[in-house]
Amino acid sequence: MSRAALLVLADGRFPAGGHAHSGGAEAAVKAGRITSAAGLEDFCRGRLHTAGLVAGALAAAAVLGVPPGDLDAAADARTPSPALRGAARRLGRQLVRAARASWPSAELDALARDFPKGAHHPVVLGVTARAAGLAPVDAAYCALYESVSGPATATVRLLSLDPFEATGVLARLAPELDRAADTAVEAARWALDEGAGALPAASGPLLELGAEWHAGWPVRLFAS
């Protein structure tokens, strides 16, 4: 395996469409729930332990070889918002494209073929990490980091927040992200034996509600 492949995959410039998604930050900013770096930190911490943990476990389980179809169904059940399911599938389809160009593999080809409208992004992320020769924990880190880096970057643009403050938020979350990655991998190992139903189902009601609210806006900067 190549550890450096993790840097390629986790790079914010990896061309898989993430830049157009705020991870719920645009809705939270408009609702007045994020107005500062402190609010951003609170938002990111909540997202890390809910949607982030679920994404991390899904991605790690895909690396371990839990069937992508099972994981995709588990992701559907853990994503009640149709707007978020749509966004996750669009991002999954965009990632499959970049992944197949970067790490050609029969499993990625099969994923693209079996999910023409896109599989959930964390599932694709896991299959990609597997194709790149990465470990389950690498995929979990990638998913968890994206769950907080997306909102941080978006908030810099939405609030003209000082980018140094936003980066400070991400750095402060690092120790929690380490623990969440371990939890995600442990859960993924359970799922290997017990099935995808054993994966965490942590939810943030306002992430789902905000996504539905956001999807109804006629004018917005971010896709989700």
Binding site: R13, P15, H19, R97, R157
Partner: peptide, 14 residues
């Protein structure tokens, strides 16, 4: 995502 040039040049996936 407030970055029109990114969408046509750096990350064209969408």
């Amino acid at each position: 995502g407030a970055c029109p040039h990114t969408a046509i040049r750096d990350d064209i996936s969408a």
